[in-house]
Simulated scan of single mutants.
Amino acid sequence: MKITESTSLYDNLDQMSVNEILTNINNEDAKIHVAVKSQIPKIEQLVTMLVDRIKRGGRLFYLGAGTSGRLGILDASEIPPTYGMPHGVVVGLIAGGDKAIRKAVEAAEDNIHGGWNDLKKFNVNQKDTIVGIAASGGTPYVIGALKDANANGLLTACITCNPDTDIAKEADIAIEAIVGPEFVTGSTRMKAGTAQKMVLNMITTALMIKLGRIKGNKMVDMQLTNKKLVERGSKMIMDETGLEYEEAKRLLLLHGSVRAVLDNLKSNAS
């Protein structure tokens, strides 16, 4: 039996007090960062290769079903507004298509050709990287996609929460965050999902930093999509230049990004 499907270490959950439930969930969650930490060498290997490949025009595709697919889409969707990257550099795909983001699509994850068919719509090529996400490590939609990606010369990786899985056998780089049985037996939206989200955060954050999308510790290329982000960007400019808020905000709205403002000021000063 897969570890993610094995029986919870806790029984009689329905007889626990609310405090006991929350405390025990928290105790289990404390195991997640240890599991993820053990995979840093594999994550580092993937990020290092991604930096070079994306600089050469490659793309990063996340592929998954259910919770795993949704987590990939979440991570991919946040890259353009957070780092100013063009849409389409990091792409999340889910078995069953966009409608599966909100509502499960019956049997979509069991289609072994579905993942590769979805990837072909993007004209994937040997510069691209495919990361399959599957807590169980046995999702046919993901396994089939990785197998076909390998056959076509793409770099492949996976994020799973079981050892020695079929998905890992198809991946050039296998990230295996083994978090143990779930508090609710088989509910991989819990520890497994959290571990996957942590790994995804690490991949794209490190990638964007090494691609030059961060200055110091600031998101200087973020899109100004709401009032909060305009205020954040204005404060960044104030911190870097000593300008007053209103002037910093005026320049930000004029040039469209913190980086553009700083580059413009530097150019005018030289």
Rank of each mutant, 00 (worst) to 15 (best):
V184D: 08
Y83G: 02
G88Q: 13
P81N: 12
S8N: 10
A35N: 05
D148L: 13
H113G: 11
A108P: 03
N268C: 04
S270D: 13
I73W: 06
G193W: 02
T82E: 09
M190G: 07
V89A: 04
S8C: 10
I143D: 00
G132P: 02
L146S: 03
P80H: 08
V91L: 08
T129R: 00
V91H: 03
M238P: 09
V220A: 03
E106P: 06
K215W: 13
A135C: 10
L229T: 06
E231D: 15
H113I: 14
K55H: 14
E182L: 09
T165E: 03
G69T: 01
K121C: 12
L71N: 02
R189A: 11
L9T: 14
D172S: 14
A151N: 15
I54P: 00
D75M: 05
M85K: 10
M219W: 00
S267T: 14
R189C: 05
A248H: 01
E109N: 05
N111L: 13
Y83C: 05
K127M: 10
A260Y: 05
I101G: 02
S270E: 15
P80Q: 11
I214W: 07
L262G: 07
E176A: 07
D164P: 02
F122D: 06
N111P: 08
I3Y: 01
M238C: 11
S6N: 15
M208E: 05
K191R: 12
A260L: 05
I203V: 15
T156C: 04
I79P: 02
E78V: 06
E182P: 05
T67G: 07
T129V: 15
M198D: 13
A145S: 09
K197H: 05
T156V: 12
N27I: 11
E109L: 01
V47W: 02
L71M: 08
M236V: 11
L254R: 13
F122K: 08
E231P: 04
A35D: 04
M16H: 12
L154P: 01
G84F: 05
G58W: 01
A248E: 03
E182M: 10
N226C: 13
T204M: 03
A248Y: 03
S234H: 07
Q39D: 04
T67E: 01
Y62D: 00
S257C: 08
I175G: 01
D263H: 10
V142R: 00
K249N: 12
A107Y: 14
T4V: 11
H255T: 10
T188C: 06
D98R: 13
N125P: 01
D128R: 02
G144H: 03
D263Y: 06
A157N: 10
V18P: 13
C161M: 08
A177N: 07
P41Q: 09
L251V: 07
N26F: 06
R259T: 12
G57V: 10
N150W: 09
T82H: 03
A76W: 02
K147V: 12
